[in-house]
Design a protein around this nucleic acid. Structure first.
Lengths: 255, 255
DNA sequence: GTTTATTGAGTCATTGCGACTCAATATTAA
DNA sequence: TTAATATTGAGTCGCAATGACTCAATAAAC
């Protein structure tokens, strides 16, 4: 249904279906194994990785297009999803142009012409719960999670796009209850702390972190426990949705 | 030179010169008479006001296009200029479509068809020194400053664009040395305080404000004076460019 | 009982902030 | 010369938040 993009009809007549010269890329962050991850897509035309993305259908709102693509690649509907930047450098397809002209190129001519034109990319940042995601895998496409530290060289200017997204994330962390979109319904505070540490890029003190995060009043303590490890199980927490959405609207009171 | 937009050639063949379906609008803030102002443009086709804007030439970087437009409308070259959002709602031209069909409409058919298609607007926020600006006025266009409190109803979704820009500005005020782009080379601290008060939307205490703003170390005290008023003249300040650009890069140390 | 990591409950010094006060200073107008 | 006016410098006071710590109780597995 969403795969007009991969039909011959679209390839021969793209401007009939989507807004010309505009593309969307989603930077989708998840969290697992105490590490922040980003979802990447293997290209169909070479052994390279790229950001999930697509185009804006004529009848789509911009955010709807971003949601549609998120749904396509992760199966998820409603998450934190936010525009964070535009990327339209004249030479942003230079690397790809060279690749397409080389003998590594495995795609077809129609894609070639379409993808190498100049696009203005709208960057959308998504925070999703890792375990809820079923990364898309079909005949031509394959999604996988990558640790932030081991993102490979990507197509176009996608490395820049990810870096910009992380900067934005680091920044928003200070006034929005960001971490929670990345975690499952219930989680130990340590996981949340790890997210903050990863995005901030430094260690935090447990006591101080807990004191602060609990002071926002958007967390609820649960009485469940982990099991399996040779130690006392950590308490689980979930967030109070009412307080949480209020904080999303009005910030965490930093100002 | 920059007025391809107003030639017959452009009107009949726009896609030859600019990226299709993409437009730019600049929200240009200035400061004078202790009030924050925004630069608006009178439309050629009706008695309405609109944001200065234009399109991206095929060979333009996005930021170059925004700079070119800023230069066109203000005469200024280098200022604080930053992307802050995209606006591409499907129905964002609805109001204009109605206007064009009404008997108030004074433009021509070619413009009609071109402007009413669906654009994705890239919003750029500019902070400029009021007194350095020579608002563009020619046969068809007329720029004027408006107080933030008395912005009229604008074309398209431009009121929304301005509101979003102010939100962004209010937000950035907390970590970037914003005010200085709005002030002349030398200024009294009270002017800076007024800017903060306007954007924050509340009164600030002089002593506390001065204490904080001076603590950033980006201001230099000058020994000049005002004259004319029946009171002690305020000291003038200017900003230390080195410290200032450093703060623009790394924030004001809030985080 | 030993080992392990979580947890609760602190301390302590420092910093920043908002709300305030008070007197000295410079300038013009009466 | 004096009065009126607004700026300036130099504070105080209490409160809240922060970062860097410590210490002992607790739960679970082996």
């Amino acid at each position: 249904m969403d795969d007009i993009l991969f039909t011959e009809e679209f390839k021969t007549n793209p401007d009939k279906y989507v807004l010309p010269s505009i593309a969307i890329n989603n930077v989708i962050f998840g969290f697992d194994d105490n590490k922040v991850k980003v979802l990447l897509l293997r290209t169909v035309y070479a052994d390279k990785w790229t950001l999930p993305g697509g185009f804006v259908l004529k009848e789509d709102e911009l955010i709807t297009a971003a949601e549609r693509l998120l749904k396509l690649f992760t199966g998820l509907n409603s998450v934190f999803l936010k525009h964070f930047g535009v990327f339209g450098a004249v030479n942003r397809a230079e690397k790809e142009r060279e690749l397409f002209l080389s003998d590594q190129f495995q795609g077809d001519q129609l894609n070639y012409n379409f993808f190498l034109q100049r696009f203005v990319v709208l960057g959308y940042l998504a925070l999703v719960q890792y375990r809820q995601v079923s990364p898309l895998t079909d005949d031509v496409r394959q999604c996988e999670w990558f640790d932030l530290e081991s993102v490979p060289e990507l197509t176009f200017d996608h490395n820049l796009i990810i870096e910009t997204a992380i900067r934005e994330l680091r920044f928003q962390l200070n006034y929005l209850p960001i971490g929670f979109n990345l975690l499952p319904e219930e989680f130990p505070l340590k996981s949340l702390q790890k997210i903050y540490e990863t995005i901030r890029g430094k260690k935090l003190d447990r006591g101080n972190f807990n004191r602060k995060i609990l002071s926002y009043g958007i967390l609820e303590k649960k009485e469940k426990y982990f099991s399996g490890a040779a130690n006392k199980a950590p308490f689980m927490y979930s967030f109070n949705k009412e307080q949480y959405f209020n904080a999303l609207e009005n910030g965490l009171g930093a100002f």
